[in-house]
């Protein structure tokens, strides 16, 4: 049943370790060749946002095995909180061309939105999921759906059912030239932000005490509890981080697209969730990879005029992929979870 192959020789192990980075590089090279640089940048940017949302899905699943259907809507709320902070509290109206001012505004925006969303995520966990910790597995799935309805409709009530504009602080005119193509700095900013946050998350999970507690809890909650890990606190921190990342994704979404709507969470949530599964649900690096992969598929479909089939292609890919690699890109054997 184990899917990971064991190689005995050192050379084999080295090759095994390099296989993933090498295949990612090969894939990126191929994508660049097929799509051209413009579409490549589009895909990387979209993938960066999917990846940030997918991280929240995968972290929550990893630790409490809950498909958190409300997470897409947490991302949506994040985009509205960012919009509100940016336009109402900070009084931004459009691009800021003064670099120090821009940096300060963007940093404040990130800090505030991430904090608010982290608190909201923890609150949702406390009210809707924690009481069901020992309940049948599907019970929290249903409360997640309920939370999703509540979030969507509360936002709709306050901000209306239409598309809402968000100030695009980074001027879209700023760009660099890469082999004859104009690459906007905004796209690079989105990709960089996402990568920085992902690396920070990896470091946090692998280097800190809390990160270790999260990992042990996801492996065996009861055993870690016996080892002195505060389970409730660890799960709450997971929600804090996952929702904070969704908040960051909300900020990035607003800066990049300049708009948001209360229905944003459903589709992007579904895509991000698919990304998490493609990557191997529960595995943070996998979720990021999955996010980029889906973005490339979607952008590719749209670039060649098959946009209307984008969703079908993504999900067919998912089905086929799971049939041949049941634990996703980077997932390990999941055991008997069901």
């Amino acid at each position: 049943m184990a899917t990971a192959s064991v190689t005995s020789s050192t050379a084999g192990r080295l090759l095994g370790n390099l296989r993933l980075p090498l295949s990612i590089l090969a894939f990126l090279g191929l994508a660049l060749g097929v799509l051209g640089i413009d579409q490549f940048v589009n895909a990387m940017t979209l993938g960066a946002i999917y990846a940030l949302v997918a991280l929240g899905y995968t972290m929550v699943y990893g630790i409490i095995e809950l498909i958190n259907f409300a997470h897409g809507d947490v991302f949506m709320v994040g985009s509205f909180v960012a919009m509100f902070i940016s336009s109402s509290l900070l009084g931004n109206e459009g691009a800021i061309t003064n670099v120090p001012m821009l940096a300060a505004s963007v940093l404040i925006l990130f800090a505030l939105t991430i904090s608010v969303m982290a608190l909201l995520g923890a609150l949702i966990e406390r009210l809707a999921y924690r009481p069901l910790r020992r309940a049948p597995k599907l019970a929290p799935l249903i409360t997640a759906i309920g939370v999703s309805f509540i979030l969507q409709n509360v936002i709709q009530f306050f901000f209306g059912p239409t598309i809402v504009t968000v100030p695009q602080l980074v001027p879209i005119e700023w760009s660099i030239q890469v082999s004859g193509s104009r690459v906007p700095l905004l796209n690079l900013f989105v990709i960089a932000t996402s990568v920085i946050l992902m690396v920070a998350l990896q470091l946090f999970i692998s280097r800190t005490r809390t990160g270790r507690a999260m990992r042990t809890t996801s492996m065996d909650r009861d055993a870690s509890s016996l080892m002195g890990v505060d389970i409730n606190r660890t799960i709450m921190i997971t929600f804090l981080i996952g929702s904070g990342l969704a908040g960051a994704a909300g900020v990035v979404h607003g800066l990049y697209y300049g708009n948001t709507t209360f229905g944003l969470g459903f589709q992007s949530g579904l895509k991000a969730f698919t990304a998490a599964v493609l990557g191997g649900i529960g595995n943070t690096a996998g979720a990021a990879l999955g996010g980029f992969l889906i973005a490339f598929v979607e952008v590719g479909a749209s670039a060649f005029g098959y946009g209307r089939w984008g969703g079908a292609i993504v999900f067919s890919l998912l089905v086929i992929f799971l049939v041949f690699r049941p634990t996703g890109l980077l997932g390990s054997h999941t055991g008997d979870r069901a």
């Binding site: 413009d38 579409q39 589009n42 895909a43 940017t45 979209l46 979404h253 697209y257 229905g263 944003l264 459903f266 589709q267 992007s268 979607e298 952008v299 749209s302 670039a303 060649f304 005029g305 946009g307």
Partner: peptide
């Protein structure tokens, strides 16, 4: 429900 139109624009 599509939010990303950048690929279509580039196309």
């Amino acid at each position: 429900g599509t939010t990303d139109f950048s690929a279509a624009a580039t196309a």
